[in-house]
């Protein structure tokens, strides 16, 4: 098992957001987490990635046999967790190249691999960018500065491709994307699918799941997973919305 979340509870500023999440992810699986706004989807992504604004009050998270909650955000990234941000951050003055080179070499160092020199890095970056239909000039530009919503998300997927994580968490990657950008992002993700790599796709809508077919779909509501199923659950949600599920859950 790659990821094992048991009874995870977390709060931000004394407000309980996650109220006991249980989730198991095996290598190669794609899990979709769906749910209405405010259900705790983004909090779950943030807690897994190591954002310090959230306090874990109960439960455990094992990643690749290690206690994930014991290590910092950068160590999680080095161990193979990748968070694609809902709102990728702009960093003026830091070029994408310097950013990715620093990140990749930090990760390689942590994995006991030699640093990539400039030549090898450029070659690798060009390859990955081409696959994502990105212009090479992007490398010289400041991280996400002046990028459109689609370009920012694509840049996150590019980073994902460069860093070769074991677990990719996509936090509402589809928000703010038009259909073309969505397809490019989804293609990028699909190209990265492998028997070793797992995905948690957090989304509000089914739309993204038409392109990235999940093996499992979980519905998050009020800080708990209230229903799990296969892809057909996403289709059911698309037809009927969340209300009937929530109602059934509250009556139970």
């Amino acid at each position: 098992m790659l990821l094992d979340i048991q009874n995870l509870q977390a709060q931000v500023e004394d407000k309980q957001i996650l109220k006991g999440i249980n989730l198991q992810v095996n290598p190669g699986e794609v899990h979709a987490i769906m749910g209405p706004n405010g259900s705790g989807k983004s909090t779950l992504s943030s807690v897994l990635a190591g954002r310090e604004d959230y306090e874990v009050t109960e439960g455990s998270v094992q990643f690749d046999g290690e206690d994930l909650l014991e290590i910092d955000a950068e160590q999680r990234a080095q161990k193979g967790i990748f968070l694609a941000f809902q709102y990728p951050v702009e960093i003026p003055g830091v070029s994408n190249k310097l950013f990715m080179q620093t990140a990749l070499n930090a990760i390689r160092e942590a994995r006991g691999q030699a640093a990539l020199d400039m030549f090898d890095f450029d070659q690798l970056a060009m390859e990955k960018m081409k696959a994502l239909q990105m212009s090479p000039v992007m490398l010289e530009r400041s991280v996400n500065v002046g990028f459109s919503g689609g370009e920012k998300k694509r840049n996150d997927i590019f980073q994902m491709a460069m860093l070769e994580p074991k677990l990719c968490i996509l936090d509402e990657t589809d928000s703010g994307l038009d259909i073309d950008a969505l397809r490019i992002v989804a293609d990028g993700v699909n190209n990265l699918r492998s028997p070793e790599r797992s995905f948690i796709v957090v989304t509000h809508y089914q739309r993204l799941l038409d392109y990235i077919k999940p093996d499992f779909v979980h519905v998050l509501y009020n800080g708990q997973i209230i229903k799990s199923g296969g892809f057909e659950l996403a289709q059911e949600l698309e037809e009927k919305g969340y209300d009937h599920l929530i109602q059934a859950h509250e009556e139970a």
Binding site: D72, E74, A77
Partner: peptide, 21 residues
């Protein structure tokens, strides 16, 4: 946090951002 989430440690992340500024 964005930099740390990509594996860059806290010190280097601060240095990178400060330097760029």
């Amino acid at each position: 946090f964005y930099l740390r989430a990509r594996g860059i440690n806290q010190t280097d992340a601060r240095r990178l951002v400060t330097q760029a500024f």
